[in-house]
Design a binder for these strands. Structure first.
Lengths: 340, 340
DNA sequence: ATTATAAATATAAACGATTACACAAAAGAA
DNA sequence: TTCTTTTGTGTAATCGTTTATATTTATAAT
């Protein structure tokens, strides 16, 4: 590696002068600067950020911890995060836990020693003691879309319950009565909230959901049993006529099951998703889904961390609302009846 | 920040002894170790990796530069890369250029100073002088799925031409004659190769492609004109009965256009994709596509970099083959004819 | 008891940068 | 000329670690 010392030797000035020439601070003869720059160019010198950051104490990297990147919702978020972070002068270090708590813990543990100044995390599990530790290291952090009663000031939340309520309510309004649901593990509080929203919407209309039409604790990564469970649900005599899926990926699983069974969406089966990922536009028919304000979410998260770093105090985090994006995956039974 | 000095002070031993206790090297009384560990725990001390890496010269981070993460193919690759990298003891620094050459250049420029020891890049453009510079900094790098004549030893290639040939040939075998194509910019050599493969397959059967059935230089990010161009192509009297798309995302655009026009796939229109991204499984009907060996690609790339770092020499890179994954998006016209 | 060896700890020099401080030369003011 | 002030450059301390070397103490060998 070529160091600042090599440059100094090459051009005959002191290390300090070279450093000055590069940073542009302090007095410097133009001629000297030129010579130094020449040497820099010739040697292909680049300052070692390890050393620079160690010396200056400037730490400029934020960590974004996601459970997955194949869920396109996270991929979209990553884009926004990167944009906002770089706007504020931070680099983004991306980490992917693959839904593993172990990996998450390991990453957090490493973070403390890395030159990381803030952490934005979509934790995969309900456990979060390992994350709270970051406080001890003086590293600001924010949980995305999670509800932890004992650490609420760090939770940037979405009103998942309300959004799910609205989605299910929408289906009920269109005349659906027999509505099924598919949910991932409640260890992720946001899924629990979506579940509660669904149940409340049902209850508000005096409806219930037959246990056979409710899939709980479904594992998104499991390409084996997940499709099987959905197929099974759809083959019962009392099968649901509409399904609320806890996220788009689950909704796409329903699409596939429907395809296999020869069921047409929305004619024979209605589906509602959650995430509004890009593919929701491209499936046939386009999926009606809940849209989380990814941009806003990202902007607030980065701003929260930045503010904490700059001032040391904790900004109050809002609870954001998601909205419904209506496309063509839910049949309107009202029109149908009237039309006949 | 709590440093090793603080720990030393707290427990009354020297900095050096504390360092030893932590690394487990050299002689150390068990009692001392215990005391030190207590202090470490009490102070919540974590070594500063900036300093550690600066001192040890151990640089352990590889950079993976992708043009996008919303293209799920890249997301999948990221997963494998991370797995293989961590297997070899590297961390992965992920960077997303959003298809911008400017951003790519900027990232490369920064890399030289960061504690980055190797670069794996899917460059978005045909320009690559900025990447070749990495050699000057002593940073190993590998281009993924690109063909650069003047830097071939760093190109990990897929035989895109062959794969495209096979895909189009497959459609021809099933009886298709009027086949259209959709391609992104040829600045990305891999798309040019796919184009050539298609043309060769056509030519091999004495077929050609009407210019109106060939969309070139389509911009994947452009949600405006891209769909419009596809719709237009499909509304011509001489519209193609089958389409070879340069990647799955483009194929999904065709799906959407077909949905809008009321064309059924594959009954009225056949489609072949390229990438075998996860969603190819979930669209209706499941998409036949070219599958790049993502795992192998990742493994070889990481191994190449690692080998270069360890030994200093450049391993010869192979040209990998992609394979066809046949699902249900291409109609079999032969059977159809015979069936009638 | 003396010496050699092993075990436990400390001192101090790095790693590659930044920067406070010191110093010298040139320019301007008296 | 002499004293300030400005400009240009160098010296050396520092960031938080690791580690070669030195030093002390305990143990074993003679």
């Amino acid at each position: 590696m070529v160091t600042i010392k090599d440059v100094a030797k090459k051009c005959g000035f002191s290390v300090c002068t070279v450093s000055r020439a590069l940073s542009g601070k302090g007095y410097l003869k133009e001629e000297t600067r030129q010579k130094i720059m020449e040497a820099v160019a010739e040697l292909n010198y680049r300052p070692n950020t390890l050393a620079v950051n160690l010396k200056t104490g400037r730490r400029q990297t934020l960590a974004l911890i996601l459970p997955s990147l194949t869920n396109i919702f996270y991929a979209k978020l990553e884009q926004y995060m990167e944009a906002f972070a770089s706007e504020k002068g931070y680099l983004l270090y991306l980490s992917n836990t693959e839904y593993s708590l172990e990996k998450e813990k390991q990453i957090i543990e490493n973070l403390a020693g890395m030159d990381i100044v803030g952490v934005i995390i979509f934790t995969a599990s309900g456990e979060h003691e390992h994350i709270k530790k970051l406080s001890g290291f003086g590293i600001p952090y924010v949980y995305m879309n999670r509800y932890f009663e004992d650490d609420l000031e760090h939770c940037l939340r979405l009103d998942n319950k309300k959004a799910a309520f609205e989605a299910v309510n929408y289906m009920i309004q269109l005349g659906h009565r027999n509505i099924g649901g598919i949910f991932q593990s409640f260890a992720n509080s946001s899924y629990q909230e979506r579940y509660e929203g669904m149940m409340e919407a049902l209850a508000a209309h005096g409806l219930t959901c037959h246990p056979d039409n409710l899939l709980l604790d479904v594992n998104p990564e499991d390409m084996g049993t997940t499709p099987a469970r959905i197929l099974q649900m759809l083959q019962q005599p009392e099968r649901p006529m509409a399904i609320f899926a806890c996220n788009d990926m689950m909704a796409f699983n329903v699409y596939r099951a429907a395809y296999i069974l020869g069921l047409q969406i929305p004619e024979h089966l209605s589906v509602f998703g959650y995430d509004n990922c890009i593919m929701a536009n491209f499936v046939t028919p386009p999926l009606s889904t809940v849209s989380a304000p990814a941009k806003q979410l990202s902007s607030i998260a980065v701003d929260f961390i930045d503010h904490h770093i700059q001032t040391g105090d904790i900004k109050k985090l809002p609870v954001l609302n998601a909205s419904l994006v209506i496309r063509n995956s839910v049949k309107n039974l009202k029109d149908y009846k009237e039309g006949q």
